[in-house]
Amino acid sequence: MSKFIIRRLLTAIPTLLVISFVVFAILELSPADPVGNLPLTIPPEVRAQIREKMGADDPFMVKYVKWVNQFMINEPLNILEETTGISIGNSEERLRYISWQTRSPIIDLVIQRLPQTLWVVGTSYLLAILIAVPIGVISAYKQYSIFDQVGTFLAMIGFSVPTFFTGLLFIIIFSVNLKWFPSVYDTTHKVSISDIDSVIFQLRQMFMPTAVLALFFTAQMSRFTRSSMLENLNQDYVRTARSKGLSEKYVVLKHVLRNSLIPVVTLIALGIPGIFQGAIITEQIFRVNGLGQLLIIAIQGGDLPTVQTLTFIFAVLIVFGNIAADIAYAILDPRVVYN
């Protein structure tokens, strides 16, 4: 098993290098211009100069090597220094990878954005798992019951109604008409456990974006759990378990559920990188300004360094998400053995 993990981690390195090069090459071909959104009152000569000073006109390979150096070597060293307090080499002179839009290190932006995304997207993912699995189990066990019908109906809604619509609907109902929840997320709000008001405020402002996303995630996961359960409920081993006289609870929760969860766990593990990517549309609607919003603003502003870095970070998470899913398989399913 540990051999398998090491092998997977080692193959991840060339994979990620190839991904980074491809991402870089694709973005290099994009016609987006970092000065394209500036007002027309800024003369073209000045724009050309700004581009040049940003390094936007450097040749492709120069930019790529710069990025590899700054992102893969300098930034990890910086993080190491900051966390351990040891200074390695000439840390003052070390160049950090800078965003064109903000002229600040991209890693700092990512670190600044991560809490919002984890609060909102992460919570909704957890919530979705907690809701979806029981719903899926009950729906499958009582197939075609009222509960199943209602569950199917809600899942269909969650599936087919896009988040920009539910988000808007929530704002109109809960912010405009009822005035229960704020429609704009306050990213500067600091939560402290001792201050109950701050916790309540955080829960209130999280409610709408979390609910919108949880509805979407729940729909997916509950359908998946249901079909996986249905498949197992009709298996021979279930009949055997029942005929042995095991209690119904034991049969369903120990035998059927455990086997049914294998594909569900894979789905959940593969979805984890998605949490870090944020939810571009939902973040935009509620102004959560997490990683998704950072990415979309960078794309709109032609801020290629930020787009490259974020895309690459997501690629890393996806590769590791895959490894995690494979490991989870082995743990859950004794039939799976890696050599």
Binding site: P31, A32, D33, G36, A48, Q300, G301, G302
Partner: peptide, 15 residues
């Protein structure tokens, strides 16, 4: 044409 391309100064772009 997308605004960031249309108003962008990329001399290689025809748009």
């Amino acid at each position: 044409i997308d605004a960031s391309v249309f108003f962008g100064g990329d001399p290689a772009s025809p748009d």
